[in-house]
Design a protein around this nucleic acid. Structure first.
Lengths: 107, 107
DNA sequence: CAGTTGCGTTCGGTGTGCCGAACATTGATA
DNA sequence: TATCAATGTTCGGCACACCGAACGCAACTG
């Protein structure tokens, strides 16, 4: 019954030792709705709600919404890579971009 | 009237030379709704819709949603790169990671 | 025991996200 | 000019995201 999104929210919330009430206050949601997100079948929160939840849980939107096939560990590494990448001068970025494109062409 | 989110969606959509119709098909939305997202005052799309839009536009959820007023052009490219990167198998990721590390060592 | 506090759960109602279908507008073609 | 195709715009209405308020239940404390 519970969705992957719901599992992630609950896992992270309990990890941070928050109650539904506490999270509700921080995110401007109602605890009843948060309960629905965690337990109901196919939750479809708004970007706004989910964004505030992600913020309160100190994870990214991407992690909550679509990291289904990715382990949390790998997601964290990917984000670290990205932060590192962003600091490069654009000439270097282009080099990496070309490598990526080349790989996509091979499948 | 148009929100930052709306501006970003339109900017990226026209950049990719897509019509509202085309984007609608790709994202499972209606073009009328996409028009509302681009032009109406305070759009509050669901995470689901926004996620599919981000994917079609090749940017991340974070980029579309966060009202970062930093230089958008390079940010868009970075996000596109990251989205592409995430789909790689981890062996490939490691290769790129090593290149990045090598760069950092040189300064 | 009765009361309190803290947590999760249920549920009816309401605002609005999102849609389909019509209408407006531009541009191209002859 | 008239006409057709493509894109953008408007609008009425339905479905459901989200809420408040009640409820259940366990662990306390006097």
């Amino acid at each position: 019954m519970a969705s992957p999104l719901g599992e992630k929210i609950r896992a992270r919330r309990t990890e941070l030792k928050m109650s539904l009430d506490a999270l509700a206050v921080q995110t401007g949601s109602s605890k009843s709705y948060l309960w629905e997100l965690e337990n109901r079948d196919n939750p479809k929160p708004s970007a706004e709600k989910l964004s505030r939840i992600a913020e309160a849980l100190k994870v990214t939107l991407e992690f909550l919404w679509n990291a289904e096939d990715e382990s949390p560990d790998e997601a964290v590494k990917d984000e670290a890579f990205f932060r590192q990448y962003q600091k490069l001068p654009s000439a270097e970025k282009k080099r990496l971009q070309r490598m990526l494109d080349a790989w996509d062409d091979d499948e």
